[in-house]
Write a protein that binds this DNA or RNA. Structure first.
Lengths: 112, 112
DNA sequence: GTTGTATTTGGCTAAATTGGCAATTAAGGA
DNA sequence: TCCTTAATTGCCAATTTAGCCAAATACAAC
């Protein structure tokens, strides 16, 4: 791998890394519904506001989120909605994993 | 966030995390072209074979890759090709980031 | 069984990530 | 100005991750 190729993949990895955290995935899902302020998200998530703020700034720096100030409140929003397409594929992976480990059978019992 | 929701997002984050590394993105791109053995990938990547092997096992455990043995050689392949759809969106993010920082202007000068 | 090739695993250190708390900044209202 | 609410930043400890080396495993050929 030469330097140019390395940069190419490092830039892409940085964006994916910004999504690779359960809390941040929750935030992305929530922002799909509309913009939210830090406090609202903090209540939903249930951890310290500083923690949530840091998660938001990680995604903002990666270019995934945008923010807008209104008085003392800052509203975050999804800047690149195509991110949501990821989840369909992630579901496929999870489905495929479950099929192999047999979990699917259990989780489907109620439907049988 | 209750436990069920937490598990939901943790499972998804684990899969995304398995992709959130430049070397692993390179491997995914390479496997799109067809299955590859550890040695081939090691030569292309240029790091220790043990390092590449670990990257592969991380993605295999996440359910992204499959492997197949042929004698002493193990061929890895992309198990869930929809993963490739990610890259189009990642490009959008990168494009959007570049537009803001002005890098796009520079990188396009040759085309003007 | 021994040798050779392909791959994985264990052990180690360095670096990055996470999350809470306290302190700070930012803006609005009394 | 002072107080309140909203959010960010700095600091720190705990955990996780990355990558190299050396050792171990897996399989095939002799």
């Amino acid at each position: 791998m030469n330097d140019k190729l390395k940069n190419h993949y490092e830039g892409r990895a940085a964006i994916i890394k910004a999504m690779a955290h359960p809390t941040r995935l929750f935030i992305i899902d929530e922002l799909e519904k509309g913009e939210r302020c830090v406090n609202d998200l903090t209540v939903m998530i249930g951890s310290d506001m500083s923690t949530v703020s840091k998660h938001l700034s990680i995604m903002k720096n990666a270019g995934i989120l945008g923010d807008r100030r209104e008085g003392t409140t800052i509203y975050y929003s999804l800047k690149v909605p195509c991110i949501l397409n990821f989840f369909g594929c992630i579901n496929e992976v999870i489905f495929s994993n479950a099929r192999i480990s047999g979990e699917l059978v259990d989780s489907c019992k109620s439907k049988v």
